[in-house]
Amino acid sequence: MLNALMGLPPVVVGLIVYIFLSRSGPFGALGLLFTPTAMIIAQVIIIVPLIASIAHQSLRELWAEYHDLLISMNVTQMQKMRTLLWDARRALLTAALAGFGRGIGEVGAIMIVGGNIDNATRVLTTAIALETGKGEFALALALGFILIALALGVNLLIHWIGQTERDSRW
């Protein structure tokens, strides 16, 4: 289920959210289409499966490691959860950053449900797409650099966390 959601192309997610939110769709009455809320909904649908699957994977690995000990110590469900979440905290942070990294690079879905309205639903990526379309390459490029810097920053952070994790096999 998570994997199926993760495999969905973001554009398709955007399209589906669009259909649901459009005036004739099931949630059309809420009037959410072309609002930041709509963009958030689309982003959540795109990002959450990614974060959840990375988090799930790392918690499962940790549980496999700890299983025998924790069972033997007869820990409560609560103690087990606290131990796993605490000892997997780096992996969980990495998952969140990976989600953020994917989110800030997203264009298609955001454009569809947000409408790329100036001062309302225009974000870095959609602005780049627009400026490029208008032939304003210089501005597009400048915005592109900001985006690259952001994405790079997130990736460096992930890399750095992963590094300390591998060094010490926390």
Binding site: S72, M73, V75
Partner: peptide
């Protein structure tokens, strides 16, 4: 009772935190 396994199970923590773990529980 306590159980020690053939392949030692160590928590991803410091030596000291491994030792305090069962007591804190």
């Amino acid at each position: 009772q306590a159980f020690v396994f053939q392949r030692p199970v160590v928590l991803r923590r410091t030596v000291e935190e491994n030792l305090t773990y069962p007591l804190r529980l």
